[in-house]
Amino acid sequence: MIVDIVLQIVKIIVIFAVILTCVAYLTLMERRCLGFFQVRLGPNRVGPWGLFQPIADGLKLFFKEDMTVLHANKFYFILAPVISFVAVLSCFAVVPFAGNAYIIDIPVAVLYLMAISSMGVYGVLLAGWSSNNKYSAMGGYRATAQMISYEIPLALALVGVLILSGSMSIVDIVNSQNGMWYIVKQPLGFIIFLICILAETNRCPFDLYECENELVAGYQTCYSSMKFGLFYIGEYAHIFLACCLITLFYLGGWNGPVLPALAWFFIKVFFCAFCFIWIRATYPRVRYDQLMNLSWKVVLPLAFLNLIVTAVIKVMF
């Protein structure tokens, strides 16, 4: 019993260490890739190819002055980054990296994911509200509207996958993709999922709630030092989570020839991350009304269509 618990704790620590390392290097990857996209080099000074850049960034954040603005509601101001951070990291509990490298495989994993990941918006909303200034508040409101609008088509797109696999456990979903990835069976669903997850993770072209040129830094305007760092890590962890989910739900997870399962998983995840960065480097930010129109008038109906067609086909054949 005790041994079991200790083993489980060790597993959790190891997996989280891996996740946080990946997240740190995701920031480096983003900066370097963006550099290449813009025909420059990106950070390459700290260590070979800039590999120690994330460490330097982290140290810098630690040494910054940690401020709590005077007119802020202190409790929520401090609570907000914690919520954002915790909400994202708890999602990784059900994300399997390979056939047996996961913390837990619960039968309602997808439901758990949807529930916990939507908690993240509370962090953003509270941050925006408690900082008590207009830019933060605007960022917070936008975040709420955006999250609510895109969570629905996201869930609907996922239901298509659930219908096909007949299970809510992520391990089962991956195993049912042996042979044929769901990106082939669910192309429309995949595109909807991609759009929604871009909006959910607050990525360009949907990074409406911290867009620098309108809102200073949106909900993060008043944050500094490690409180900002937590938001930042949370955001990148969210992107990493999104890449994992795309891989697991649509790209066949860790299945692949020759290479070990773990290698396939990370190849696919980092390919997704590259696509995220690629999209960021390409598209301009949409306007707020365009964002809402896209969600309610285009993506949502398409998601319903996808769901109906999938269900009908599943029942008929």
């Binding site: 290449f36 996209f37 813009q38 025909v39 420059r40 080099l41 690629w278 480097a281 390409t282 598209y283």
Partner: peptide, 18 residues
């Protein structure tokens, strides 16, 4: 949208001016 992606990808592989 696709043309845009293609353009940026070409830049990704072009030589940096830095």
């Amino acid at each position: 949208l696709i043309v845009g992606l293609w353009t940026t990808l070409r830049h990704f592989f072009s030589r940096s001016v830095t």
